[in-house]
Write a protein that binds this DNA or RNA. Structure first.
Lengths: 107, 107
DNA sequence: TGCACATTTGGCTAAACTTACAAATGTTCC
DNA sequence: GGAACATTTGTAAGTTTAGCCAAATGTGCA
């Protein structure tokens, strides 16, 4: 694989990697449903340290998946790219395939 | 977040995590285009140690994204779920948004 | 059986990721 | 200015991941 091809896949992987964490998937899902949320609201829902949540948000923002909007002392985050929601559909179908496959093995 | 919700997002993250590596994205892309490939062919194309490639393939297989088919001494892998290819489209659009955004900042 | 080849697995190291606490920064309001 | 609050950042510890080499396993064939 040449270095240009390598770079192409690294750039893609970086964005997918930003989605590859349960807390970050929760955040994306939540923002998709509610439009926007501030860090304190998300922290409350997630139940982790606020600094941890802030770091997850930074990862998603750095990847370009969410955008931040400072309003007073709060920072509100919103989804910038809706198409990442398509990931969920596909993931669900993979999981369904998997459980079907496992059921088959047991017979 | 309760433990059921937590488990849901962890299961999803596991599958997305399997896609979150440049080499594994390359493999998925290659299998999508060529139908199937044995480990030795992929190893040749990727240019890493065969044991490394074998481990990447195991990750994708464990997630349910690819399937293996042993034929003689070789093991052929093929894509089991085409919808993961939708990831690429979305990732491209995120990258385009990002570069547009960066261009705007420079003006 | 024994050699050649394909693949996987064990073991190890280095790098990356995740998390929490504490401290720093920024904002509002008195 | 100073207290109260929201958020980010520095730091350190623990965990996971990626990579390679070497060894083990499995297959085909003389």
């Amino acid at each position: 694989m040449n270095s240009k091809t390598q770079a192409k896949y690294e750039a893609r992987a970086k964005i997918i990697k930003a989605m590859a964490h349960p807390t970050r998937l929760f955040i994306v899902d939540e923002l998709a449903q509610r439009g926007e949320r501030c860090v304190c609201e998300l922290t409350e829902m997630i139940g982790a340290d606020m600094s941890t949540v802030s770091r997850h948000l930074a990862v998603l923002k750095e990847a370009g998946i969410i955008a931040d909007d400072k309003r007073g002392a709060q920072v509100y985050y919103q989804l910038r790219v809706r198409c990442v929601l398509n990931f969920f559909e596909c993931v669900e179908s993979v999981m369904q395939n998997n459980s079907r496959e496992r059921a088959k093995v047991l017979n």
